[in-house]
Design a protein around this nucleic acid. Structure first.
Length: 569
RNA sequence: GGCCCCAUCGUCUAGCCUGGUCCAGGACGUCACCCUUUCACGGUGAAGACAGGGGUUCGAAUCCCCUUGGGGUCACCA
């Protein structure tokens, strides 16, 4: 048993899925506190639920999420699940591997008559709860099993009769000292004799946490406020076991923009809404499991399987809300922005500083500055922060980081720019044009759609055609024809020195053209845009031309002239 | 429903502990104007809050009480 002289904080996820954004904030604050105090940040995997546990993959996902955010840990599983990090020798870090430790302390409570075996079945307990509900009173287990003589309880338990172990709730008030909330007092008699060991021999969360925090020398517990109601139980257990009570700090909840719990379900809801809006009654082609879809459609409480959910979202053009860290990564947010933003949800440095990095947080973090009120997650503000961070990057940095992101999430774009192996001139040029007009990496890809769309697949926007090309007797078309001739004469060479198909030269050409024809730049650039992209929106026209390349530009102008002649629209 | 927690602009918050410097500061969003070859970026500015009611005090966003509102939790899940 190590009573550590150093401050130790911990993040203790259960491996039931990916890293939730709320969990990420909890981890971040624990990390920051450890850094601030010069202590250790520890990771523990709470896998005591044999039914829900999704195992190794989940653990890897969580570790990857933390690593991506830049949150490192001193103790716990290695990022690749290799050799544990264990400088103080407090392993193992999986609760499922600590069963002997729980058993040992459980026995102490049993021997001291501070805990007892109880033999009610789940069904019996459910019935008791239902009855309590009918009678509109809170259900509390008040030691019915204690009517069985102590010897007999032990004998029945030893004989293998299924049973749980319950903790005898203390008779006095319990005071939780919280660094955020102050003293929270729970009156004597409010706690019931809760279960600390399940019938399968695994400890419940309450018991495992208390034992682990003690044995691992955890000194500070920072966790969500949803745990506040649990804390009295933990304190009571600590007292019964003769353990220290760590410093607690309960974080205000993060809720979605609607004010509800921010959960994976939000994605399901978004798709459900879109399906309703579209009036779908049968499974569209993109859905593979049609039976699941049909059942899902009928039952509001059901969640559609992940694969079809994503397929539907893509088909219906629904933007799924980002909930898990991986969602934010895939959406093209920067990790340093995500940590910055979530740090502001319930904490602030106190002055008007809002933009800061992990070093700043490690230096300034303080539990006394954690707020008490719940915080809504504001996607717009996050996006604004991301936009600012992108804007603050150098062109080179943006190009490199955007490329890195594309390599994982948008290889099509890299292929279209011929930059599949590394950022090339063309990609860099596109990046330069993209940086000021995207809030996220993914948005940047959207803005480059004109590039990835095949010439023959370009759809000419009707309004754009009539306004820009057909208006005034096809003024735009005439401009296009002339421009095509001029552009066709521009040198396009592999040799850099000879190559005139560059933004600077093209810009000059267009400028001269518009002067010669006594037209505003808009009258020249807009017809080109429509011809090249089908719409009136694109990066600056010189960049658009340069990025597309000469042959594609001429090809597209030709197709446009053919597709939308005056009078045909 | 019981218990617990909370309450400043639409949103995130500063200020509250140690009442006066607050006709309440910042940020996102919104609106207006400027810049501009489109879309953006950028720049300037504006509107916008102390939940309500009682106290305490010379004086309250700040302290106390009540009301109202919101949230969490009531598992052999964590």
């Amino acid at each position: 048993m190590s009573t550590s002289p150093i401050p130790v904080t911990r993040f203790a996820p259960s491996p039931t899925g990916n890293l939730h954004i709320g969990g990420a904030r909890t981890a971040l604050f624990n990390w920051a506190l450890a850094r601030k105090l010069g202590g250790h940040f520890l990771l523990r995997i709470e896998d005591t639920d044999q039914l829900r546990d999704t195992g190794r993959e989940s653990v890897l996902g969580i570790l990857e999420g933390l690593a991506w955010l830049g949150i490192d840990w001193d103790e716990g599983p290695a990022p690749d699940l290799g050799q544990d990090r264990d400088p103080r020798g407090v392993h193992p870090f999986y609760q499922s591997k600590r069963l002997n430790l729980y058993t040992e302390h459980l026995q102490r409570l049993l021997d001291a008559d501070l805990a007892y075996h109880a033999f009610e079945t789940t069904e019996e307990l459910t019935a008791m709860r239902d009855e309590a509900k009918r009678e509109k009173r809170a259900f509390k287990y008040e030691g019915a099993a204690l009517n069985i003589p102590r010897d007999e309880r032990f004998k029945r338990a030893e004989s293998g009769e299924p049973c749980v172990v319950r903790f005898k709730a203390p008779t006095g008030d319990i005071v939780v000292k919280d660094d955020v909330l102050g003293d929270v007092t729970i009156a004597a008699g409010e706690l019931d004799d809760f279960v600390i060991c399940k019938a399968d021999g695994f400890p419940t969360y309450h018991f495992a946490v208390v034992v682990d925090d003690e044995l691992m020398g955890v000194t500070h517990v920072v966790r969500g406020q949803e745990h506040l109601a649990n804390t009295p139980r933990h304190v009571a257990l600590q007292q019964a076991l003769g353990f220290r009570t760590p410093n607690y700090a309960h974080l205000p909840l993060i809720v979605n923009p609607g004010g509800g719990k921010m959960s994976k379900r939000d994605k399901d809801k978004a798709v459900r809404q879109a399906v309703r809006d579209a009036g779908l009654t049968d499974a569209p082609a993109c859905v593979q499991d049609t039976a699941d879809f049909a059942a899902w459609l009928k039952d509001k409480n059901r969640q559609l399987n992940q694969r079809d959910l994503l397929a539907l979202a893509a088909a219906l053009n629904v933007e799924l809300p980002e909930i898990e860290v991986e969602d934010f990564r895939a959406a093209g947010y920067l990790p340093e922005v995500v940590t910055n933003y979530i740090a502001l949800l319930g904490w602030s440095p106190g002055d008007d500083i809002e933009k800061f990095d992990l070093d700043f947080l490690a230096e300034r973090f303080d539990t006394s500055r954690i707020g008490k009120t719940g915080a809504r997650f504001d996607y717009k503000k996050l996006a604004a922060f991301n936009n600012d961070a992108i804007g603050a990057m150098s062109e080179e940095e943006f190009a490199q980081r955007w490329w890195d992101w594309c390599a994982a999430y948008s290889p099509e774009l890299l292929k279209a720019t011929g930059a599949a192996d590394a950022p090339n001139d063309n990609f860099t040029m596109l990046a330069g044009a993209t940086r000021p007009r995207c809030k996220t990496f993914r948005e940047g890809v959207g803005g480059a759609a004109f590039l990835t769309t095949d010439t023959n697949d370009i759809v000419f926007d009707e309004k754009a055609v009539s306004k820009v090309l057909h208006k005034n007797d096809g003024e735009g078309i005439a401009v296009l024809r002339e421009l095509r001739n001029e552009l066709s004469e521009v040198q396009d060479s592999e040799l850099r020195a000879l190559n005139q198909w560059r933004p600077e030269h093209l810009h000059e050409l267009i400028e001269k053209f518009s002067e010669k024809r006594e037209l505003g730049m808009g009258k020249v650039a807009q017809p080109l845009r429509v011809a090249l992209t089908g719409s009136t929106v694109s990066p600056p026209i010189d960049a658009t031309l340069a990025i597309l390349g000469k042959s594609t530009v001429l090809e597209r102008i030709d197709r446009c002239l053919e597709a939308v002649p005056v009078g045909a629209g």
